[in-house]
C-alpha cells in the first residue's frame, strides 16, 4: 500500500440526511485503472463527487497523495491533481470547443503552457481540432464525451475520475472512448472508472470494486470475476 495515490477509509456520505455511501474503504495505486461497478442508483456517482469535493463526506477520511481532502473545496482538490469527468459531461454549452478545453487549464497561469496542453489534446483527440470553433452544444453525443474527457485531461491531474464514459453512446462511439482510455492507461495514467456495464470496463481494469447499496461487496482482479460472469450479468442485468 506504499505507493497508493488515493485512499478512502470508512467514507460515508449522503444527501439531506439520507445515506448513499456507507463506510466505503478502497485504495487506488499509482498507474492503475480501478473500476467501480454497480447498478444504477447505488452510489457510484456520489462516490466520485465525494472524492472531488462536490459532496462532503459525513464520516471517514479521503486521502490523496498523503493529504486529507475532507475539508477542501473542489477548487483546491483540482489544484492538488484530481480531474473529474462528470456524468452527463457538464460541458459549457454556449462556449466553443477550444474555450471548453481552455477552461480545463484554468489553473495554469502561463498562456504558452495552456497552448501546449491544447496541442497535446488535439493530437490525442483530433476530432476536437476539426471542431474547435463549434459551440459545445452543437456536437454529437460522442464528440461531447470526447470533449469532456479532453477538458478533464487539460487539468493535467495525476488522478482521473471517469463517470460512466460509455453512457448513452452507440457501440462504435464506445469503442472509440475505450480506445482513448486504453491509450491513457498505456501512458501510465491513474484512473478511477465508474461503469454500469462490466464488459468494456473489464478490458481496461486492473482492479474491480463491486458497489451495492452504498457498500463495497466484492473486490478483486477482473480475471477472478470471469468465472462469475453469469452471476454478474444476472446481477447487473447485462
Amino acid at each position: 500500500m506504499s505507493d497508493s495515490l488515493l485512499d478512502l477509509d470508512g467514507v460515508s456520505a449522503g444527501y439531506a440526511g439520507r445515506p448513499v455511501l456507507r463506510e466505503i474503504s478502497l485504495s487506488v495505486q499509482s498507474g492503475l485503472v480501478v473500476v467501480i461497478l454497480g447498478p444504477n442508483g447505488h452510489g457510484k456517482t456520489t462516490l466520485l463527487r465525494c472524492i472531488s469535493g462536490l459532496v462532503k463526506p459525513t464520516a471517514g477520511i479521503i486521502r490523496f497523495d498523503g493529504k486529507t481532502l475532507n475539508r477542501h473545496s473542489s477548487e483546491k482538490i483540482v489544484k492538488l491533481g484530481i480531474a473529474h469527468v462528470p456524468q452527463g459531461d457538464l460541458l459549457f454549452p454556449e462556449m466553443s470547443v477550444r474555450d471548453n478545453l481552455l477552461m480545463g487549464a484554468y489553473l495554469c497561469a502561463s498562456a504558452e503552457d495552456r497552448q501546449n496542453r491544447l496541442e497535446k489534446i488535439y493530437a490525442l483527440l483530433p476530432k476536437l481540432k476539426e471542431r474547435w470553433e463549434q459551440m459545445a452544444n452543437s456536437l454529437s453525443g460522442g464528440e461531447r464525451r470526447m470533449l469532456a474527457i479532453g477538458r478533464g485531461l487539460m487539468t493535467q491531474g495525476r488522478l482521473m475520475l471517469l463517470d460512466e464514459p460509455s453512457l448513452g453512446l452507440a457501440p462504435v462511439m464506445i469503442d472509440q472512448i475505450y480506445a482513448v482510455i486504453n491509450n491513457l492507461k498505456a501512458q501510465g495514467k491513474t484512473i478511477v472508472l465508474v461503469e454500469e456495464h462490466p464488459k468494456r470496463a473489464f478490458e481496461v481494469a486492473d482492479l474491480v470494486y463491486l458497489l451495492e447499496d452504498g457498500r463495497i461487496i466484492w473486490q478483486g482482479k477482473p480475471e477472478d470475476m470471469t468465472g462469475r460472469q453469469k452471476m454478474l450479468d444476472a446481477y447487473l442485468g447485462g
Binding site: 473545496s73 477548487e75 459549457f92 454549452p93 454556449e94 462556449m95 481552455l102 487539468t155
Partner: peptide, 23 residues
C-alpha cells in the same frame, strides 16, 4: 481568462468548480 471563467460559471457552476474556478 477571467471572462471565460465568468461565462463558464454562468453556464455550469458545478463544472466550473471542477475546473478549479473559485466560483
Amino acid at each position: 481568462k477571467l471572462g471565460r471563467a465568468i461565462r463558464a460559471t454562468s453556464q455550469n457552476q458545478e463544472a466550473a468548480q471542477l475546473m478549479g474556478v473559485p466560483v
